[in-house]
Simulated assay, not measured.
Amino acid sequence: MLRTVNRVLPGLAGLVLVVLGGSVLAVGLGVRPPTWWIHDGRHDVLLADGDRTRWRDEGWWWPAVVAVLAVAVLFALWWLAAVLRRPRLAEVLVDTGDGEGALLRGRALEDALTAEAGALRGVRGARAALVGRRSAPEARVRLQLEPHADPGETLSRLTTESLAHARDSAGLTSLPAEVRLRAARHGPERVN
């Protein structure tokens, strides 16, 4: 739902701005507007003299307006880049050995890696994500360890078992991984 709203609302806002801007341009070029439109004709202005010159004597006004608009444009560009960027790998190219390739959904490999890493002894919770290119994926694994777990042993088992199974099942030559370990906190226990 959030993804839909994140794409539909800016699209509608852009459409409204394009329609309003296009209509102002059309009226300025001589197209006769309808009677209910916000300005009457070619020589009508959007901002009257009183509105435009109200802050003219204040030296800070126009630089402030330009600065606010520049920040708004930079924010809009940053937001657009964040929306268009794919943080996760959608698919992984699997070598089938016959000169052709197959595509494996990245989410399926992430789910398998998460399940296998979560089943390791001493792991309370796991989360895996694939990043990089589809021909050379990289794994980012986060593990929440039980208080009694040995981080070295858990990392060794993750490398030799879970990551090795994921690499072998996808037919990859290598699967570099960034692993973050976090110890689980536990509260005091009541003794009767």
Rank of each mutant, 00 (worst) to 15 (best):
V16R: 07
L9F: 15
A115N: 04
E178N: 13
R56E: 01
T96P: 01
R157C: 13
R140V: 11
V68M: 12
R42N: 05
D111S: 12
L2H: 14
R52D: 00
V19I: 15
T53I: 01
W37C: 12
R32A: 04
V31F: 12
E178S: 15
G101W: 11
W61V: 02
R52H: 01
L84D: 05
L155M: 12
H148V: 06
L2I: 14
E58T: 14
G21D: 07
R7S: 10
S23E: 06
R157S: 14
D150M: 08
E138F: 00
G21K: 10
A67Q: 11
L47E: 08
A128H: 09
A117D: 00
L15P: 11
G30H: 04
L104E: 04
A108Y: 09
L143G: 06
R167K: 01
S156Y: 13
L17M: 15
T114N: 06
L109T: 00
G171C: 10
R157K: 11
P10G: 12
G171V: 07
V141E: 01
R105S: 08
R86I: 06
A164K: 02
W79E: 13
Q144A: 01
L109M: 04
E138D: 07
T160M: 11
H186Y: 11
L46M: 11
A82R: 14
V191M: 01
G122L: 09
A26W: 05
A149W: 02
E110C: 04
P33G: 05
V65N: 12
T4K: 10
Q144F: 03
S162H: 00
W62H: 13
E146S: 05
L145N: 08
A112P: 03
R85G: 07
S23G: 05
V66H: 15
T173Y: 04
V65T: 12
A128R: 04
N6L: 15
L29D: 03
L2G: 14
R54P: 00
Q144C: 00
D51K: 02
H39D: 13
D44F: 02
R180M: 04
E91M: 03
A64H: 04
G50F: 01
R3D: 14
L104R: 05
V191H: 02
